[in-house]
Amino acid sequence: MDMIAWTLIILCFTVAFIGLVYPVIPASLFVFLGFVLYGLFYSFANLPWWFWVAEVLFVILLFGADFLANAVGVKRYGGTKAGMWGSTIGILVGPFVIPVFGILAGPFIGAVAGELLINRKGLKQALRSGLGSLIGFLTSVAVKGAIQIIMILLFVIVAT
C-alpha cells in the first residue's frame, strides 16, 4: 500500500511541475492534492495545522505570481491591457496550436496580436510588448517552480 500511496503522491508532484510550462494544468492544486493524498493514506494528524496554513498561503502566492509576472512583463515593456489579454490567451492556446514551441510562442504572438489589432500600436511597440510577455512568462515559471519546491520540501520535512 505504501508503494501505491507514494507513487500517487509523486505523480501529483510531477504533474504539478509539468503544469509550470503547461498552464492548462493547475500546478498548485496538484501539489496540494499530493498533500491530501498523504493525509488520506496515512493520517492528517501527521501534518499539523500550521503546515496547512502555510501551504494554502503558498497556493495563493502561486496564483498571484502567475498573474503578476505576466502583467509586469507586458507593462514594463510598454504593453497595454490588450497585450496582457493577448498574452494570457496565447499562453492557454499556444501549446495546442504549436506543439512544443507554443508555450513560448503563444504568449509572444498573443501580446503582439493584442497590441496590433486592438490598440493599433506600431509593429515595434507590439514586438516589445510580446518580448515583455515572454520574459514575464519565463519569470513566472521560475518563481512558481521555486515556490513549488519550497512547498514540497516543507511537506517532506514535516511528513518524515
Score class of each variant (00 low, 15 high):
Asp2Trp: 07
Met3Ala: 12
Ile4Asp: 08
Leu8Thr: 13
Ile9Ala: 04
Ile10Glu: 08
Leu11Ile: 13
Cys12Tyr: 05
Phe13Asp: 06
Val15Ala: 10
Ile18Met: 11
Val21Arg: 06
Pro23Leu: 06
Val24Phe: 03
Val24His: 02
Ile25Lys: 06
Ile25Ser: 02
Pro26Val: 08
Pro26Lys: 01
Pro26Phe: 04
Ala27Tyr: 02
Ala27Gly: 10
Phe30Gln: 00
Val31Gly: 05
Phe32Ala: 00
Leu33Asn: 09
Phe35Asn: 03
Val36Thr: 11
Tyr38Cys: 01
Ser43Cys: 03
Ser43Arg: 06
Ser43Trp: 00
Trp49Arg: 01
Trp50His: 15
Trp50Asn: 14
Phe51Glu: 00
Trp52Asp: 04
Val53Met: 01
Glu55Val: 14
Leu57Asp: 11
Leu57Asn: 13
Phe58His: 03
Val59Phe: 09
Ile60Pro: 06
Ile60Trp: 06
Leu62Lys: 01
Leu62Arg: 00
Leu62Glu: 00
Leu62Gly: 04
Phe63Thr: 07
Phe63Met: 13
Phe63Tyr: 14
Gly64Tyr: 04
Ala65Asp: 00
Asp66Val: 08
Asp66Thr: 14
Phe67Met: 15
Leu68Arg: 12
Ala71Tyr: 14
Ala71Gln: 03
Val72Ser: 07
Gly73Cys: 11
Val74His: 01
Lys75Phe: 12
Arg76Trp: 03
Thr80Lys: 07
Gly83Met: 05
Ile89Tyr: 14
Gly90Trp: 07
Val93Gly: 01
Val93Tyr: 08
Phe101Trp: 14
Ile103Arg: 02
Gly106Tyr: 01
Phe108His: 06
Phe108Met: 14
Gly110Asn: 07
Ala111Gln: 14
Val112Ile: 15
Glu115Pro: 08
Leu117Gln: 12
Ile118Tyr: 09
Arg120Val: 04
Arg120Cys: 03
Lys121His: 04
Lys121Arg: 13
Gly122Asp: 15
Gly122Ala: 03
Lys124Gln: 12
Lys124Asn: 14
Gln125Glu: 15
Ala126Pro: 06
Leu127Phe: 13
Leu127Lys: 05
Ser129Thr: 04
Phe137Asn: 10
Thr139Asp: 10
Val143Asp: 06
Lys144Glu: 09
Lys144Tyr: 05
Gly145Tyr: 11
Gln148Gly: 13
Ile150Arg: 10
Ile152Lys: 02
Leu153Pro: 03
Val156Ser: 11
Ile157Pro: 02
Val158Ser: 06
Thr160Pro: 01
